[in-house]
Design a protein around this nucleic acid. Structure first.
Length: 638
RNA sequence: GCUGGCGUAGCUCAGCCGGUAGAGCACCUCCUUGGUAAGGAGGAGGUCGUGGGUUCAAGUCCCAUCGCCAGCUCCA
């Protein structure tokens, strides 16, 4: 008899050789029906796995999210089977489940076309309808290699040769067999909803030196409703795509004639940027940061000293000769800030010295990686370099981290993922410095009471760091803030930074690079998607549009707008010869927070009729009252 | 950079098996002065990304190149 312990600690006895499926049936029909695979002593197994001896069993049902991985893994096999039927001789690589779906990398005779994808999809549906059971077989690894060689499955051979297992397993459904650890769903018919999405290229083992394979992506779900939900989530993301909204809301553009990855901020986008920049400066000055500005080009000399010319050259643009001296466009702001620091002798009393700049840099990015505002070639870092003594480094880092959290919260980013990266094997700097600064970073995080992940050895060679990612309204993560120590640039081999300590001697300060947003371009892109284009009042390019009903009301509309503008609000007038409905529609599409309709009644009463972009009618009110409304929104960052 | 797809009016897109370019919106003019998501009429606007080639004839087919998109690789 097999003695089976269930997750609730209850124990059941069944005859040896009882399969997982039979075991599930012995518990209940529903459970047997919903069972996808099981875990026996923590190992995932198929439903046909025979039980014997003392075992702990956990049956994974469709209701458990992890069951989707197994469903999708099985779908990858079905996809491979379909491809083998349609394009015999296609060599198979790997086919794992991923978030929201699965893929299979393969090496067909020619790349897949959109028509191929339709055919593959249709063939997969056929295989599902044929309801082949998945079965498992085992071979000695050497035999498996022979078999894969015979079938010319060179990628499988390569993998098998690297493994060290004695035996390996294969799974068969119908005429198709694939090397696989399993487990799988019971049969191809157990797949309720599967769809092939697209084909793209992918390097074998993710290495660009290797051959490029074709990756077929697919998705699979337990129900049509789940698929629909997934599709509508994709559609929502598409609707919020910052490139699309950027055009629709007239925020920014890029131009072939000027170059890709170079952003042009239109008046409406630029207005938002200015609001962010003003707020940024205000908050920095409040915290004792000193504003600086540094040039966009610099002699190569400086990058030779900083080491960028060597370590960073792939990302730097080529030299331009100015009076026979090579210059470069700046890829970093730090050398300039360091030169400002170095232009005086500093006392320990002046530290921490915090130099801040919205510094625009240019980096060469391969054409294929450029992406709207999120990955560009020219961008503005909300940069600061802090020169700090070892004594005050702890407090300073606590303050910097708190600053970052408070800043991101202004934009509604409350759900942060935080990563601490520590000393890698190859690194510069004294152990004492690494220990002290890693401790400072760790302490800043724990004193803020936040959860964080530690990436041991994941720091840069020149110092440990904290990275902060924000989660947007669609649940996607974006890298924003970073706090990074640098033991390299202040060192005597580089810029040889110092300050005069209490005892009159020279000491080397710690240097911290930090950014709250990362780059204004990327942050703006993230904001567009986060807000879906509907910027809160404090950021909105236009906070209110005054809409005169007829020409007779234009004068009054102008007075209302001017009055609000004088008090610092961003208000315009839509005086075009269009009907009210038309103007409301357009202001709504531009996601202007408020529309102030003025007609005969409002002119007479010196009032405005307020409408929100949501369509909600707030009724008629005095301009003073509306102004108060705006002020409340701005204070609450609505 | 690599693989595949796509580049037609300012924008969104039609344009069949090659026969000489079309819609809606936007723009301009006129009419209309209209109370909460598109009032009406007319007009202007394109060497079909660029450069070659095939052909009697190329937006359409072929090659190259640039750009964009989906990924891979890489990153603020």
């Amino acid at each position: 008899m097999a003695k089976i312990t269930l997750p609730d600690k209850s124990v059941r006895e069944v005859p040896d050789g009882t399969t997982v499926r039979q075991f599930a049936e012995s518990i209940g029909k529903r459970l047997a029906k919903d069972a996808v695979i099981a875990e026996v002593d923590g190992q995932p197994v198929d439903l046909f796995f025979p039980l014997a001896g003392d075992r702990s069993v956990r049956i994974i049902t469709r209701q458990m999210p992890e069951s989707l991985d197994h469903l999708r893994h099985s779908c990858a096999h079905i996809m491979a089977q379909a491809v083998q039927r349609l394009y015999p001789g296609t060599r198979l690589a790997i086919g794992p489940p991923i978030e929201d779906g699965f893929y299979y990398d393969m090496d067909p005779e020619r790349p897949f076309t959109p028509e191929d994808i339709e055919k593959i999809d249709a063939e997969m549906q056929k295989i599902v309808a044929q309801n082949f059971p998945f079965s498992r077989s085992e071979l000695r690894r050497s035999e498996a290699i022979e078999r894969m060689k015979a079938e010319k499955q060179t990628y499988k051979v390569e993998m098998l040769e690297e493994w060290t297992d004695e035996t390996v397993s294969f799974y068969t459904q119908g005429e198709f067999t694939d090397l696989c650890r399993g487990p799988h769903v019971a049969a191809t018919g157990a797949v309720p909803v599967v769809k092939v999405l697209r084909a793209t290229g992918a390097y074998w083992r993710g290495d660009e030196k290797n051959r490029m394979l074709q990756r077929l992506y697919g998705t699979a779900w337990w129900s049509k409703e789940d698929l629909d939900l997934y599709v509508s989530r994709q559609e929502e993301a598409k609707k919020r795509d910052h490139r699309k909204l950027g055009k629709e809301l007239d925020l920014f553009s890029v131009h072939d004639e000027i170059g890709s990855g170079l952003i042009h901020w239109h008046p409406r986008g630029s207005m938002i940027r200015h609001v962010i920049e003003e707020e940024w400066k205000k908050e920095h000055v409040k915290r004792g940061y000193l504003m600086v500005d540094t040039p966009h080009i610099a002699s190569e000399e400086i990058y030779r000293i900083s080491g960028h010319l060597e370590a960073y050259k792939d990302l730097m643009y080529g030299a331009m000769m100015i009076e026979e001296r090579p210059f470069r466009v700046k890829p970093m702001n730090c050398p300039g800030h360091i030169m400002i620091y170095k232009s005086h002798l500093h006392s320990y009393r002046e530290l921490p010295m915090r130099l801040a700049e919205l510094g625009t840099v240019y980096r060469f990015e391969k054409s294929g990686v450029l992406h709207g505002l999120l990955r560009v070639r020219g961008f503005t870092i909300d940069d600061a370099h802090i020169f700090v003594s070892p004594q005050s480094v702890e407090k300073e880092i606590v303050d910097v981290f708190r600053f970052a959290v408070e800043w991101l919260a202004k934009f509604g980013f409350k759900d942060l993922s935080i990563y601490l990266s520590t000393r890698p094997e190859k690194s510069v700097g004294a152990s004492e410095d690494w220990e002290r600064t890693e401790h400072a970073l760790r302490n800043a995080l724990s004193s803020a009471g936040v959860k964080f992940e530690v990436d041991e050895g994941g720091g840069a060679f020149y110092g440990p760091k904290i990275d902060v990612k924000v989660r947007d309204s669609l649940g996607r993560e974006w890298q924003c803030s970073t706090v990074q120590f640098d033991f390299n640039l202040p060192s005597s081999q580089r810029f040889d930074l110092s300050y005069v300590s209490e005892d009159g001697g020279r000491k080397q300060p710690y240097m911290v690079h930090r950014a709250l947003m990362g780059s204004l371009e990327r942050f703006f892109g993230v904001l567009i998607e986060h807000y879906g284009g509907a910027f809160p009042v404090w950021l909105a390019a236009t906070q209110a549009t005054v809409i005169p009903i007829a020409d007779a009301h234009i004068g009054y509309a102008g007075q209302v707008a001017e009055g609000l503008r004088l008090r610092g609000f961003r208000v315009d007038v839509d005086a075009r010869n269009e009907r009210t409905g038309h103007k409301i529609r357009e202001a709504t599409l531009l996601k202007t927070p408020y529309m102030l309709v003025v007609g005969e009644k409002e002119v007479a009463a010196k009032q405005v009729a307020v409408r929100e972009r949501s369509g909600k009618d707030l009724g008629v009110m005095n301009v003073d009252r509306f102004e108060q409304l705006l002020a409340e929104d701005i204070a609450a960052r609505r």
